[in-house]
Amino acid sequence: MIQSCIKKKILEKAVSLEKFGMNDLAWEKDAAVTLINSLMNDDIGILGGSVYKIDSNNFMPMYDNWSCNPDSKEVSKDFNFRSKTRALEYINKYPIYLDERILFSLVFTEDVD
């Protein structure tokens, strides 16, 4: 079960996607980067994520995503750190144009519920 201090960090700036018919959370770029950096020393990893765009209240999947799987000989602490580094690299490199609202969903190694 996810620790309450980690859950609080995750939920703090999350955008619920329920109104778009998805039981998921997402973050704008700055919030996602801040969140992942705040989780760097926590015992949780990021298995991957997806990218969405909101334009005039229209929700559009961008069909862009990334994933990160543990190596067979990798201990969980090393995977957790590597997976967060990989997520940061992807999000920081993702192009966002002026006035675009891009959201990043994250798949954690533990359920946030």
Rank of each mutant, 00 (worst) to 15 (best):
M1K: 06
I2Q: 01
Q3H: 10
K7V: 03
K7N: 02
K7E: 01
K8C: 06
L11A: 05
K13A: 07
K13D: 11
A14Q: 08
A14K: 05
A14D: 06
V15Q: 00
S16D: 02
L17A: 03
L17H: 01
E18K: 04
F20P: 01
F20K: 01
N23L: 11
A26D: 05
W27G: 01
W27T: 00
W27S: 03
E28C: 06
D30A: 00
A31C: 14
A32Y: 01
V33Q: 06
T34L: 03
L35R: 02
L35Q: 05
N37W: 02
S38A: 11
L39H: 05
L39D: 00
M40C: 06
M40N: 12
N41M: 06
D43C: 11
I44W: 04
G45T: 10
G45R: 05
I46Q: 03
L47P: 01
L47K: 02
L47M: 12
G49A: 10
G49F: 05
G49H: 01
I54W: 03
M60Y: 12
M60I: 15
P61H: 07
M62D: 09
M62I: 14
Y63Q: 12
C68Y: 08
P70F: 11
S72W: 08
S72L: 11
S72I: 12
K73T: 15
K73I: 09
E74R: 05
V75L: 07
S76R: 13
D78E: 13
D78K: 10
N80W: 11
R82V: 04
K84F: 05
A87L: 12
L88H: 00
Y90H: 06
Y90S: 02
I91K: 00
I96S: 14
Y97L: 12
D99T: 15
D99Y: 15
D99E: 13
D99G: 08
E100K: 04
R101A: 10
R101D: 14
L103G: 08
L103P: 05
F104L: 03
L106M: 11
D113T: 12
